[in-house]
Design a protein around this nucleic acid. Structure first.
Lengths: 211, 211, 211, 211
DNA sequence: GCTTAACCGAGACGGTACGTCCAGTCTTCCA
DNA sequence: TGGAAGACTGGACGTACCGTCTCGGTTAAGC
């Protein structure tokens, strides 16, 4: 039962990998995901098509890895610039005022989602993930989950200080203000503004029923 | 300088339209959206390719219309069976207990989303809509908006009875419990159960902060 | 047992066929048979690859047909120019002197075989035919056989006038002087000159044994 | 400015060479020449591709050498078995009856050409040789010429005994009966039987013209 | 009632990209 | 340093669809 003999990763060309990531992101930005082709990426990267097929199984996988790689490089660069420990740098602020902290972070998220450079590849990934469950799982795990964990940590801290009901499931709680933003961004069902983010935090923390 | 002389809709073949809808939905169910082709739909429907290109501009448009058509027929059938006025049949229940009513409807929504027959084409449409803003707008308008209006109406009623804070924007308020469900379904970030729906209603109505 | 539904020859594009023949012959002349590709022919002819695959099953088939077509056009042109009935124009001369007539024709054959324009595609066809028996049969039938029949006719006439032994099988007899020429041309085992052609005729007619 | 530094033949691996010959002949027999690849030969021989490229410049060269090697081994084995001096063992029989001797040898040749094991690689070589003049020269020189010399010798002997016209060029004379056989085999223009061989000898020796 | 314009099924066409296969080169590690 | 292994660039393969374009045939309006 020979499984096509997997390639030897230790001999992989780093130079080609980089070139493929760069070409993929560039092309997606220029012509969009649907019109970006494996052939085009290979040509732009100065690489044989087989080199792509050898290491990735689909266009979406290339994009995912390129995206993860980009994130890692950005993060490393940011950490270097600020001189702060990367792990800590990512943590959500904790000023003791949960509402203010959440609004701050959500406003930044909204800004990021509205950034065109970020938008095209991320949308493509999201679209592909909706149909390809495997890919979706990897996107969630590698791109989303780390961010969600930061929210969970902040919410738990708030539960300990009594700012938040102690019996809440933080995973579900954070969906009240995060999912609406994701939804609007994905489906374009409404504008994404700072005011909207603020409103969500208020509605979610205060509840919809009168007190 | 004639603009391509639009086809004469009055002479359109109803039989072909039906066959194309049926073929499209069947193929998408059988092989998935990506592997469904215009050519395949035409062959399956016993129709010339040009007949599709004449009336629709993309695969996604065909699917959208097929889907809308399917919904209309289902609804008509349901109305016929129940003997109730269709307009009224769709309205959300109003027992005076908002929480209970919302839970009821959300549970039904969760069940529908978990129905495999519904899932594949709807996912395809959602995925395509993420990239194609025009399509997305039509999906929202034709498939989603009518449902959302029912929620808005119910929430407004609750504001009048004092069950809900009067200063709320109902469009945003309903996102607190609807978006998390949409999100989980689209991205597979968590299970979709009745219990989850109930929890969302409780968190949203009661708020996350302690009273 | 549906056999892929053969294409409808009546709707075939004459313009494409011509362009493909021309491109094929041009490319083979320019870069040789081995480096001529279907893709290259299609590009040069301004034709989709599928149009080639639809009507021919291999590069060799294209070449064969292009070659036959070329022959037919040449012949038609020659007939037109000379104003003679084409059927007659091709017949071998019959001056009553068999040896002289054969030498004349063989010398012309030798000249033709030494013509570079003719050589490359014909060699390619011969080479392919050696391995592909089907192709070989078609080459023999469409390109060689008509010519051989002319020899057979001339030899039969000679048998009737007593210039040739009456008990000979003309098909075998003509091989004595034609095959050596073919052989030398194919395998390059010796020069192809008028003198050589003359010698063959003399040896074959007179026999190798002393009288 | 070193010219690519030719490999040091003295350090060449005999084991690899053998394995490559065996693999090449086996593959050509199994899948035919066109579908035999350098990569396939290397894999089958358990050899690196570079080892083939180092010592041969083309697939045809490998086959030619493998074929020559096979012939040499067969001949050595035959000589060993018969216990006769190899040089003599190959000479054409000379019973004093030229026609009978030639018929004998040609019949054996016909049988050999009809042997399927011999046919496939030899045909491949012939086909390649038609296009590749260099290869053709080597095939003629290494595989054909030795055999032809034996005929030349026999014909010269016949000239001395008066069985053959003294003024003949034996190289051309032998083509009268050998080329038709080669031709029929290569192009499949007719059957290759003992009777055909006999007829050729008779026609060639007696001549086509009546006495 | 007879033309005539349009839709229709069918499918050939010029193209683009697919995913695979090999050529021939280059690099690494082993004996 | 020859050889086994195999990753690399490059390019052709044969296939699948794209969206456009004829080609008869059928069908419904308008004369």
């Amino acid at each position: 039962m020979a499984t096509k003999t997997a390639p030897d990763a230790s001999r992989r060309s780093e130079r080609s990998r980089r070139a493929i990531y760069d070409a993929a992101l560039a092309l997606i930005g220029e012509v969009g995901y649907a019109r970006t082709t494996i052939e085009g990426i290979a040509a732009r990267a100065g690489v044989g098509k087989q080199t792509i097929y050898r290491w990735w199984s689909s266009k979406a996988e290339v994009l995912l890895e390129a995206f993860v790689d980009l994130g890692e490089r950005n993060m490393a660069a940011a950490a270097e610039a600020s001189g702060v420990d990367p792990a800590e740098a990512r943590a959500l602020p904790d000023t003791g005022d949960l509402a203010a902290d959440l609004k701050n972070v959500l406003r930044a998220t909204v800004d990021e989602l509205n950034d065109p450079g970020f938008e095209i590849p991320y949308r493509a990934l999201a679209a592909e993930g909706i149909i390809d469950r495997d890919l979706s799982a990897r996107v969630v795990e590698q791109l989303l989950e780390p961010g969600l964990q930061l929210y969970v940590a902040r919410l738990r801290a708030a539960q300990e200080t009594g700012e938040l009901r102690a019996d809440l499931d933080p995973r579900i709680a954070l969906e009240l203000f995060l999912s609406p933003i994701a939804q609007r961004w994905l489906q374009g069902t409404g504008e994404l503004s700072h005011a909207y983010a603020d409103t969500l935090v208020e509605y979610a923390l205060g509840g919809l029923a009168p007190r």
